[in-house]
Design a protein around this nucleic acid. Structure first.
Lengths: 97, 97
DNA sequence: TTGATAGGCAAGTCCACACTTGCCTATGGT
DNA sequence: ACCATAGGCAAGTGTGGACTTGCCTATCAA
């Protein structure tokens, strides 16, 4: 379950895509391709980006929304908030300042 | 920098090790090996666990502390809290409830 | 209907990384 | 002095996954 979230976040390109969706929500595949190339200098194939988006969707981090021939991608930050909750601060064993 | 944190969290065994350190801070390599085997049924070599710990240390998620021939491992949750901060909730574009 | 745009599917390549094995060092007990 | 314990280093193997290429489908505009 959360397994997919960590796998999705493992790749730097996917993290860049999330950054891109924070900047502007609801971008299409081609828009993301263009931004990765022009802004971040990442020249990967359209299919490459598409596969990354599939992984992000599988992790629930990106919500696809179809309209006609367009597929817009919306960010969902909810799974990210769960991460810090899994490993709470350990209790100090003896005297704590 | 945060790059290493995501890579460290990508592996399920390393996440288990973090779980183990939440349960009890300051465990040694052999203790972690034993716990992984008996509690989680993970029978990997000592060197395997050692390499995982090295990755976690590189990410700043685990703080080693030497005492004699023992090396205790303490959890450091601080990098985890940074994750959710990187991708804030996107602004709703039009009317928001 | 034709062409252009937006996207999907499937197979193939290649490398990082998880894991093992074998040997070496250092500390502590007896 | 010895041996057991706790850990480190280095090289070898195998597999998941990132990325590409080529072809196919669907929507819209002329």
């Amino acid at each position: 379950m959360a397994d997919d979230v960590f796998k999705a976040l493992a790749d730097p390109t996917r993290r860049l895509i999330l950054d891109e969706l924070v900047r502007r929500d609801g971008q299409t595949l081609y828009e993301i391709c263009a931004r990765l190339l022009t802004v971040h200098g990442l020249g990967l194939s359209r299919q490459g980006v598409s596969q990354h988006l599939a992984v992000l969707e599988g992790a629930g981090l990106v919500r696809p929304r179809r309209e006609g021939r367009y597929k817009f991608h919306d960010l969902n930050t909810e799974p990210l908030e769960q991460i810090a909750l899994r490993w709470p601060k350990p209790h100090p064993p003896k005297g704590s300042p």
